[in-house]
Amino acid sequence: MNADILVAGETLIDFLPERPGPITDVSRFDRRAGGAPANVAVALARLEHTPLFWTRVGDDPFGRYLEATLTDRSLPGRFIELDPKAKTTLAFVTHDETGDRSFSFYREGTADTRLEPGRVADSDLENCEWVHVGGVTLSSGRSREATLDLLERAAAAGVTTSFDPNARPELWPDEATFRSVCRDALEYVDVVKATGGELEALGFSGETVDERACGALEAGPHTVLATRGRAGSIAVARNAAPWSGPGTTSHPGYDADVVDTTGAGDAFVAGAIAALQEGRGLEETLAFANAVGAAATTAPGAMTALPDRDVVRSIRE
């Protein structure tokens, strides 16, 4: 398969609670496939932009379940690796009454920390137009080097690169390390998607999300997409951005009957990549990405709630 998008990062098991509340009060969990880059890859496939996906899971029952789930959702198996020496990462999710969630990870030395640099060859990158990575694989293990190596080589090859820091403080030794490593990644990145809180954690100052997003342009990217929850999203871009001139664009988002926000940001990322790959401008890109993200909140789970184009169209009508 000759895909023009490559997504790289973790695939893991999300255990979703039977009801909202702290983990100490939940007795039953439902197993689901998850991981931010995995969600982005599957969402792109649902939006008719099937990518290559580079990931690593354990050669264990959970890992084989994830491998089957990814291939069942049309992702090619070329870069889906089974690690015979490490387990698959597990994440227990809890929700509050509004659908917002928190995570408890079991990830010490697991397979997604063991991505190896060079697994995606330069010849593979020559056939790509876009590479997307997330921040979790930067947090520990050999995968940090592998992710930075992929971004550096993709940038050198003229491939458009995007990055979602996907801040999970429990996976990092401290905020300073998170900021330092992610700022290293930003040197090779064209497009960043982040929340206002993530932009602040990355060291970009400002009282508003818009101000922090403008600050992030100085770190390397030519485009910053910032999500603002129920308030929609904004985009800021420099002259170097191929899809617009400099300036700020915003979209108020769409109303949705929120059940579970897990994966909404990943759906937004996929919507944005798909729209930009189709040559849409930033205003239309935000509208489409917001609709994809909103649709993803209307059912439980991340991957299982990802919409196709018909669902996205119904959100926008």
Results as ranks from 00 to 15, higher is better:
residue 111 A to V: 07
residue 113 T to Q: 03
residue 72 D to C: 00
residue 58 G to L: 03
residue 112 D to T: 06
residue 163 F to T: 07
residue 56 R to E: 10
residue 98 T to K: 09
residue 146 A to E: 03
residue 74 S to N: 14
residue 286 L to K: 08
residue 110 T to R: 10
residue 254 Y to E: 10
residue 100 D to C: 08
residue 281 G to F: 10
residue 46 R to Y: 12
residue 139 S to Y: 05
residue 303 M to W: 03
residue 68 A to R: 10
residue 260 D to R: 02
residue 73 R to A: 15
residue 21 G to D: 00
residue 263 G to D: 13
residue 112 D to S: 13
residue 244 S to I: 00
residue 21 G to Q: 05
residue 243 W to D: 13
residue 152 E to Q: 14
residue 58 G to M: 03
residue 286 L to S: 13
residue 206 G to C: 03
residue 311 V to Q: 13
residue 221 P to F: 05
residue 310 D to Y: 04
residue 229 G to D: 11
residue 59 D to M: 04
residue 207 E to G: 15
residue 30 D to K: 06
residue 226 A to N: 07
residue 101 R to S: 14
residue 306 L to I: 04
residue 154 A to E: 12
residue 194 A to F: 11
residue 298 T to Q: 15
residue 228 R to H: 14
residue 254 Y to V: 12
residue 98 T to C: 00
residue 85 K to I: 00
residue 312 V to T: 12
residue 227 T to M: 03
residue 135 G to P: 01
residue 198 E to R: 08
residue 190 D to A: 04
residue 71 T to H: 10
residue 142 R to V: 06
residue 316 R to T: 15
residue 128 C to M: 15
residue 81 E to C: 11
residue 162 S to Q: 09
residue 246 P to Q: 09
residue 237 A to C: 11
residue 289 A to E: 07
residue 116 E to A: 09
residue 29 F to P: 06
residue 120 V to H: 02
residue 101 R to P: 03
residue 229 G to L: 01
residue 302 A to K: 10
residue 58 G to W: 01
residue 81 E to L: 13
residue 129 E to L: 06
residue 115 L to S: 06
residue 137 T to N: 14
residue 235 A to K: 01
residue 235 A to W: 01
residue 131 V to I: 13
residue 147 T to D: 12
residue 287 A to I: 05
residue 66 L to F: 07
residue 120 V to E: 05
residue 177 T to Y: 06
residue 146 A to F: 00
residue 286 L to P: 09
residue 149 D to R: 09
residue 16 L to S: 01
residue 206 G to S: 05
residue 254 Y to H: 13
residue 204 F to A: 06
residue 237 A to K: 07
residue 43 A to R: 02
residue 31 R to K: 15
residue 145 E to T: 06
residue 205 S to T: 14
residue 178 F to S: 09
residue 218 E to R: 15
residue 7 V to N: 06
residue 170 E to F: 02
residue 65 Y to N: 09
residue 27 S to P: 00
residue 223 T to S: 13
residue 100 D to W: 11
residue 101 R to A: 07
residue 12 L to H: 01
residue 291 A to D: 08
residue 93 V to H: 04
residue 252 P to K: 13
residue 108 E to A: 14
residue 276 L to F: 04
residue 260 D to F: 02
residue 179 R to L: 11
residue 313 R to S: 14
residue 160 T to D: 08
residue 296 A to F: 05
residue 252 P to F: 11
residue 256 A to C: 12
residue 309 R to N: 11
residue 94 T to Y: 01
residue 55 T to M: 00
residue 1 M to P: 08
residue 3 A to Y: 09
residue 127 N to M: 07
residue 315 I to Y: 00
residue 169 P to K: 02
residue 157 A to M: 15
residue 173 P to T: 11
residue 226 A to C: 02
residue 4 D to I: 08
residue 266 D to Y: 12
residue 20 P to T: 03
residue 92 F to E: 04
residue 252 P to T: 08
residue 39 N to L: 04
residue 36 A to Q: 11
residue 171 L to P: 06
residue 220 G to W: 04
residue 123 S to E: 15
residue 217 L to M: 04
residue 145 E to V: 03
residue 301 G to A: 12
residue 256 A to T: 09
residue 305 A to H: 09
residue 150 L to P: 05
residue 246 P to V: 02
